[in-house]
């Protein structure tokens, strides 16, 4: 737990952002588990990658700035990496899935559950 007392202007928004980010990430992964077809499963995890990660990173920026008594923005680096890399993975997985489906000659509407 935090030992030092942090100012309220950092704690209040950081708490709200952490709760929001946690909910977004959880919903994204629950969607990954719940959806019936593979192409539907592609969509929910990008919730965690965008809003979930964004909220937690902003919260981390606020807390580390308050701890260091100066603006600390190195979390922006992770934001840049996530924003540029997670769509690339999603696109490649999508293309791989399409490629494998064509290779197996599945009917397009086949429910891929089980």
């Amino acid at each position: 737990m935090t030992d030092t007392v942090l100012p309220a202007w950092a704690l209040l928004p950081a708490s709200l952002l952490l709760i929001l980010g946690g909910i977004c990430t959880l919903l994204g992964s629950v969607g990954l588990l719940r959806m019936k077809r593979f192409y539907d499963r592609m969509h929910p995890p990008s919730m965690g990658n965008t809003l979930g990660a964004g909220c937690v990173l902003i919260a981390s920026m606020l807390i580390s700035s308050a701890l260091a008594h100066r603006p600390v923005i190195h979390e922006l680096l992770i934001t840049v990496f996530i924003v540029t890399t997670s769509p690339i993975t999603a696109m490649l997985v999508m293309r791989a899935a399409l490629h494998r489906q064509i290779a197996r000659r599945d009917p397009p509407g086949k429910t891929d559950s089980g």
Binding site: G28, H43, S46, T50, M91, L98
Partner: peptide, 10 residues
């Protein structure tokens, strides 16, 4: 692709 709900396929 980074917008949830749409993915670039081809």
């Amino acid at each position: 692709t980074s917008t949830p709900g749409t993915v670039w396929a081809d």
